[in-house]
Design a protein around this nucleic acid. Structure first.
Lengths: 203, 203
DNA sequence: CCTACCGATCGGTAGG
DNA sequence: CCTACCGATCGGTAGG
C-alpha cells in the first residue's frame, strides 16, 4: 500500500521537497498542487489544512529518526568505535536526503519553541546514552578529559546538519576551483571528531 | 546622522530582527510597520519595495563582514595564534548579534544560487589567506598533515554559524538540566578547532 | 507620513 | 478530484 502513485504520498513528497527548498511560508497550496498535477482544493481534500500538511511532513521526518537512526546506529555498534559509527550514521541519514537537514534547520529557525520541546522529548534518552558513553571513555582514559561531552556532541551534530544542508553553498567561498566536495567535507568532519575525542596514543 | 530615531534606520533594525526570526516570506510589510509604529505605505515610502528592504538588510549584514571582520581579525593577529584568533573573531562577530547568523543561514537556504556568487565574490580572497596560512603550518610541521585545509575551515565556519544560530534550541535535546550554555558550546568549539588543527606537542 | 484604494494571491469552503 | 467562490491579506499606488 501507499505506492508512489498514492496521491496522498505524492503530495507529501512534493511538499517535503518544496518546503525544504523555499520554506513553509514560501510555498502556497497552489504551488504544491501544480507540482503534483492537481487543483488547489484537491490538495486540501487530502490534507484538510496547510498546517496539517506541514505536520505530516515533520512527522515523516521525525518518523525516520525513530525508525532509521536506531537501526543504523545499532549496526554501527558492531563495527569499530561506537561514537565514530554514530557520527557516520547521522551523516549518512541526512546525506541520503539533504532535504531532511534543510527541513530540520528551517524548523529550528522558524519554530524554536516547539522544536526545543520535540527534541527534548524524542532525543533525550538517546543523547543521554551517547554522552554517558563519552564519560565512560573519559574514565577509562581513552577520551580526552578536558572535553565537555554535551558540548562536544552538540558541535558534531550542528556541524553535520549544517554541512549537509548548506555545505555546497558555503564552500563557494573558496572559489570554484578550491571548493571541497561533500565527500571531502564529511571525511574532514569525521577526522575532526575523532582527533578531538580521543587522547593521542602513547608511543 | 542616522541616529536610532531616523525612521529609515529603525525600519531596517526592525526588519532585520523580524526577518531573522520568521524569514522574509513570513514577515509582511504590515508587520514591519506595526513594529516600528507607522502605517504600511509609510514603510514603502522609505523602501520602495519589500525586495529593496531585504536587499538593505542583507547589505548591512555584508557590510559588517567587510568592515568589522577584517578589523577584529587584524587585532587577533597580534595575539597568540592567528587561526585561533580568527575563529574567536568569527564567533564574537556572530555572537554579538545572533540575528546575523540566523539571517545568513536563512539566505543560504532560501537563495543558494545568489549566495554562492556573493560568498565567492566577497570572501574568496580572505579564505585564500586563511587556507594558505594553514598550508604553511603544515609545511612547518605544526599543523596536522592529514588535514584538508578548505574542508577544515569550512567545518569550523559551519559549526560556528550553526552554534550561534540554533545552538540554544538544539541543546534542548540533552534535557533542561544537561543543556550546555552557549559559553560552554563556544569553548568546546575552540578546543575542537585547536586539537584538530595542530600536531600534538612532542614530549 | 497618512488615507483610500488597487489587483493578485492567500488558505479554505460549498457543492457536486 | 473538480468548479465556483469566499473573506482576508498581500505588496504596492495615488494623491495629498
Amino acid at each position: 500500500m501507499n505506492e508512489s502513485d498514492d496521491p496522498k504520498v505524492r503530495i507529501l513528497e512534493v511538499a517535503t521537497r518544496l518546503f525544504a527548498a523555499r520554506g513553509f511560508d514560501g510555498v502556497s497550496i497552489q504551488a504544491v498542487a501544480d507540482a503534483v498535477g492537481m487543483r488547489g482544493p484537491s490538495v486540501l481534500y487530502h490534507y484538510r489544512t496547510k498546517e496539517l500538511l506541514r505536520d505530516a511532513v515533520i512527522a515523516k521526518l521525525l518518523g525516520h529518526w525513530k525508525d532509521d537512526l536506531p537501526r543504523v546506529l545499532a549496526a554501527a555498534q558492531s563495527g569499530g568505535d561506537r561514537l565514530d559509527g554514530a557520527l557516520r550514521a547521522m551523516l549518512g541519514f541526512f546525506g541520503d536526503d539533504p532535504d531532511r537537514a534543510r527541513l530540520l534547520l528551517r524548523e529550528l529557525l522558524d519554530r524554536p519553541g516547539p522544536m526545543r520541546a520535540v527534541l527534548a522529548e524524542q532525543l533525550q534518552p538517546w543523547t543521554r546514552l551517547v554522552t554517558d558513553y563519552v564519560r565512560i571513555g573519559q574514565a577509562e582514559g581513552r577520551v580526552r578529559s578536558d572535553l565537555d561531552p554535551e558540548a562536544y556532541v552538540l558541535q558534531m551534530i550542528t556541524a553535520g546538519i549544517g554541512t549537509i544542508a548548506t555545505g555546497d553553498v558555503v564552500s563557494a567561498m573558496f572559489g570554484p576551483d578550491r571548493a571541497p566536495s561533500r565527500d571531502a567535507e564529511v571525511r574532514e568532519l569525521v577526522r575532526i571528531a575523532r582527533v578531538a575525542l580521543f587522547n593521542p596514543r602513547p608511543e
